[in-house]
Every structure is written in structure tokens, then in C-alpha cells.
Computed example of a mutant assay.
Amino acid sequence: MTQPAQNVMVLYTGGTIGMQASANGLAPASGFEARMSDYLASQPQLRVPAWRFREMAPLIDSANMTPAYWQRLRVAVVEAVEAGCDAVLILHGTDTLAYSAAAMSFQLLGLPAPVVFTGSMLPAGVPDSDAWENLGGALVALGEGLSSGVHLYFHGELLAPTRCAKIRSFGRKPFATLQRQGGVARAESVPGTLDYRQDKAPACIGVLPLVPGITPAQLDGLLGSGIQALVLECFGSGTGPSDNPEFLASLERARDAGIVVVAVTQCHEGGVELDVYEAGSRLRSAGVVSGAGMTRETALGKLNALIGAGLAADVIRQLLAVNLCGELD
């Protein structure tokens, strides 16, 4: 069910959209509320809902985004909704926008309002900038009505954040929906600790892409670094160096230590099915959990929410196969 937004909170985190030149290059800058107000006043044909503005602290280049910042964003969204806003627009840098939008999809489970992420590839005010078209388009979309949950808006498109990634470092269309599939989502009850109103601790999660010649020592180094979970980017449908007993033993030690290891595919299309090849089934036997069609961004964001909610490793493994917000559609 969609409802036209009447009162939007705009959360400004920084990013290219509001950057200005500094001695060391483009940097996040305050004062974007006035610039946004001036632009919208100059465009009376745009039918946008009423809006408020909050500048997050600190303003950051999105390359500096962290799970701790996601928690500040979650709190800011909840505060806005509890204060009477019926939608939230988050202005964010594009480099980690897909990560944040995916992560916040899980952080805001059950939120009775739509949240839209947008940003721009060029700063507002420079020639050929996409800043105002993205900001204005996102506000118009909210005014026309969006379903509850998190959305990503860019270049006239609404994208499901648990299915997309930034695939280009240039141009007006940096984001794309990846054609991912694999596995069947089980229907199970969702723990109350995942509710959007519940505080969640920032999690420490590693990501390791497999490459030919990767050694058990490399895997051991990451697993021994204090991470609570690992996103293992496997070959194809979920294969890895299964003829290396030391590599498999390292994965088994991770399982026994309560470190959840989730396999996702390195491919842009498809997904993980660990039992198709022996090289995949051996990973499963060593404790690796299938991430099915989840993207790297989505697996990272889901693990952050599950671990941050304080769930036990066995519960996390079960919930990785449960479709919480479209990540396994």
C-alpha cells in the first residue's frame, strides 16, 4: 500500500551532491539546506511535499561510511517518523550508497514509512550536474506515494536496494539491478530484536574474494582479525579451493568459533547453489552458508543487522535463508 507523503525529513550525510571545492579537492560542505530551498523555489512546476532538513554530523565523503554511522542514520530516521514525518529522504554519496541503502533495509525492518536514498555523480551547481534532477525526482516520487521500506532513486529510476550495486564510476546511471537468483527463501518468524525501533550494535564483518592461488594463511589472517562474520566471494555458483585441506580446516575453525561465513557469487548474474559441484558441497560441509542470490552489499548489510541484534550464530545461519526485505526474491 502506498500513501502520498505530506511531510518529508531530508537527512543530509554529505557526499558529492553538496560538495564544494577545497585546497585538496571536492569535500563535504554545510549550507545545503539553503541551496536546496533556493532550487525548489525556482522550480514551481515541481510538485513536492513539505520538507524539513537535518544535517547529519559529521558530514562525510561516503568513502568514510561505517556501520556506526548506519546506527546514527537509523536513530535519525526513527526520530523523524516519531516526530510526525511520513517519509525520509537521505542524501548520500554514491560510492557506498548501495551498501548503505541495503544495510538500512535491514536496520529499518517494519518502519511504517518509505525511506529513499539518492545522491549525485556531480555536485549541485556545476555544469551538467545530476544533483537537482535526482533530489527533485526523489521528492516527487515520495509525494506521489511509495510503499514502506527503503528505496534507491537515481536518474528517474526507483531501484530495490537489496538487489542493486554501483557498476559505473562515471555517467548519470551508476547503479543497476543485478540479475541474481539461487536458493529458496524459507518463511519463518522474525525475531523482535530486528524491529526498526531496537538498538543494534555495529558489527565487524570481513569480505574476501577468492582468487586462484589464495592461501589458507590469507584466510586465517582475516578470520583471526576479530571479525564476527565473513562474506566469502566464491567462484561461479559457489565454488572454492576444495582440494586444499588446510583451507577447509580454516573454514571449519571459523564455524566452531561462531564466525558465520556466507558464500556469495563473484558473478554479476546468477547466485550460489553450493551442492551443484563437489567444490561447493565441500565448502558447505566446512560450515559455509549459502547466500543464494544476495549481492555483496546485501550480505554485508544483512549480517550487520543480524549480528548487531545480538542473535546467536545458529539463528543467524537460519535467517540468512529467510527473505526479510526482498533480498531473496
Rank of each mutant, 00 (worst) to 15 (best):
T2L: 09
P4G: 02
M9W: 00
T16G: 06
I17C: 10
Q20H: 08
N24P: 00
L26K: 00
S30G: 11
S30A: 15
A34C: 05
Y39G: 05
A41G: 01
A41V: 09
L46V: 09
A50R: 13
A50S: 14
R54P: 01
R54V: 10
E55T: 09
S62C: 03
M65Y: 09
T66A: 13
Y69F: 15
R72I: 00
L73N: 04
R74K: 10
V77M: 10
V77G: 10
E79I: 06
E82Q: 14
G84R: 05
C85G: 09
C85S: 15
A87M: 03
I90W: 08
H92R: 08
H92Y: 13
S100H: 05
S100W: 00
S100G: 12
A101G: 13
A103F: 10
M104A: 09
S105Q: 02
V116E: 02
F117S: 14
S120Q: 06
G125T: 06
V126C: 01
V126R: 01
S129R: 01
N134F: 06
G143V: 06
G143I: 08
E144T: 11
S147D: 15
H151G: 10
L152A: 05
Y153C: 03
H155D: 15
G156D: 03
C164D: 01
A165D: 02
G171Q: 04
Q179S: 12
Q181L: 09
V184K: 14
A185M: 07
R186P: 00
V190D: 02
A201H: 07
P202H: 08
I214N: 04
Q218L: 15
G226H: 08
I227M: 12
L230K: 04
F235M: 10
G238T: 04
P241Y: 07
N244C: 15
E246Y: 12
E246R: 15
F247R: 05
L248F: 03
A249Y: 01
R253I: 09
R253H: 10
R255C: 12
I259N: 11
V262P: 08
Q266K: 13
V272Q: 13
Y277M: 01
Y277A: 08
R284N: 01
R284W: 00
S285P: 00
V288R: 11
V289Q: 12
S290H: 08
A292M: 12
T295L: 08
K302S: 02
N304P: 00
A312K: 15
A313H: 14
D314A: 14
V315H: 12
V315W: 05
L319A: 06
L320M: 15
V322S: 14
N323Q: 05
E327I: 11
D329G: 14
